[in-house]
Structures are given as structure tokens and as C-alpha cells.
Design a protein around this nucleic acid. Sequence first.
DNA 1: AATATATACTGTCGAGTCCGAAGTTTTGGT
DNA 2: ACCAAAACTTCGGACTCGACAGTATATATT
Lengths: 122, 122
Amino acid sequence: MAKSDSSPPDSLDSLPADVECYCQLDGVIDLLSRQYAMQVICLVGAIGPARYGDIESAFDGVSSSTLSTRLSELVDAGYLSRHQHEEIPPRVEYELTASGAQLCERLQPLLEWAGQQGDLPS
Amino acid sequence: MAKSDSSPPDSLDSLPADVECYCQLDGVIDLLSRQYAMQVICLVGAIGPARYGDIESAFDGVSSSTLSTRLSELVDAGYLSRHQHEEIPPRVEYELTASGAQLCERLQPLLEWAGQQGDLPS
DNA sequence: AATATATACTGTCGAGTCCGAAGTTTTGGT
DNA sequence: ACCAAAACTTCGGACTCGACAGTATATATT
């Protein structure tokens, strides 16, 4: 390599160091890059303890399997807590953990902005 | 975010109206829910005009087809601009549009926080 | 002169992941 | 006995990703 110099403006060479970290944000970002993940976090953040049915009906047309998977992932990752009441019919409540609340804070501006963008559903 | 209100939110009945909008954030959020999408926005935001090769090497192990698709989508959606210099070998520069910059602003806190979370790869 | 190189992609293919409709489980009500 | 409600599973199809190969062309190298 080692270009002589004075070529088109080099970009990567003069980067701030913290840019490098973008290449391995597999953990959280990967989790959020699934359908409804960000919305679920914000929804639970907005309504507090949320039952499965609450969440399901807040999204129009989500399938239960998808939502269920998403919730499990978020619980496993430690952003949601799951509290199951031992009753019949079953009652389960999801709530943000401390991490989840931090995440939600960062997500809110994004989702609000996204909602304002021409997201007109036909 | 207006956090004050020491009383816990009770249920879906007493929701702020803007919660409903979470159910149809298909546009932008859907776009961001693809691999590397958020990182690309922030990367371009961080390094300014970015060439294809710059972006490709910033992510470790992305395939060219995936990255190419992602870039096209972001350009089509109006978050990135693509400027092709008519030279050989070709030189293409991607840059944030005004919308892209707004998006990047909202994304930065999230990605920074994500980077700090235990993202330990093994 | 002929070949190699660099750049920014596009195409194809197989593997893997994700999504949504329908089914399952358990108990209480009629 | 039969149905309804809540919170999930199961299953098959659809979508997406990554690896690899190929394209075009001016300059550099041999």
C-alpha cells in the first residue's frame, strides 16, 4: 500500500478511534435489528408492566410466534423481566429492567422521529 | 423524554396517545432493522464522505452483496447520497443527506451505549 | 506490448433465519 | 359437555445473508 501522498483525501486513516467500534456491535444492535424489537422496548417503557395481550394488540398484525420469540430474546438479554402469575388463565407481565430502561431512553428519540417522518401507511 | 410523574403508569387505558403510533412504524424502522444499516449510517456520519471500500473495511466480514444492497436501500430511502466520480478506477462517495444526519443524531447515543454494554465477543 | 491491478459493484447459489397462521394447554363458566 | 380466554408452540414457506465469481477500464508493471 503506502500511497505516496496527496491523493484524494484519505478517510479511514484519519479517523477518530471510536469509529472502529462500529464494526463489532453484534450484541445489542443485532438484537434490536429484529422486527418489533425496538418498538417492544419502547412500548413496555411507555406503559409499564405489560401483559402479553397488551403488547400483541398494540401492534397490528404481529404473529404470536414472532412476538413470543422477540420477548424471549429481550428477556434473555436482560432488557425485559418476565413475571408469571400462577393463575389460570395465565397472566404474564413484562417490564423493563434497568438496562432496558437505559435502552428505551436512547430509543425514544429515534422512534419519535421515525413516527414523524412520512411514515404514512397508505 | 418527559420523565417526572412519580405515579406508575397503570394500564393500556390510560396511555398517552402517542403510544399508538408504535404499531405502524414500518418505514424507517424496518429499514434500520437490517444488518449493518444503523452502523452504516453512523459510520458515514462519523467519517463524512465515505468510499465503498472504506465502509467495507470498517466492518469485518461483510459481504459485498449485502453491503451493496444496504447502501442502495439507504440511498433510495433518502438517507444517503451517492456521488460517483467519472474516473477509472471508479470512485464513489457516500454521504449523509439532511434526513440521514437527523437519523444519525438519534442513532449515535444508542450505538455508543451499545458499545459500552458488555459486547464482549467471547 | 501484454499482463496485472485497483475499484465498485452485480449475479448466482445454497444455507440459514424469520415470519405468520393455526394448533395446544389448562381451567372456569353455562 | 362444550366453549372461551391467555400465553404460548409448531410448522412450512418466504426472505435474507454470505461466499465466490465475474464485469468494466485506465494506469502501472514486466
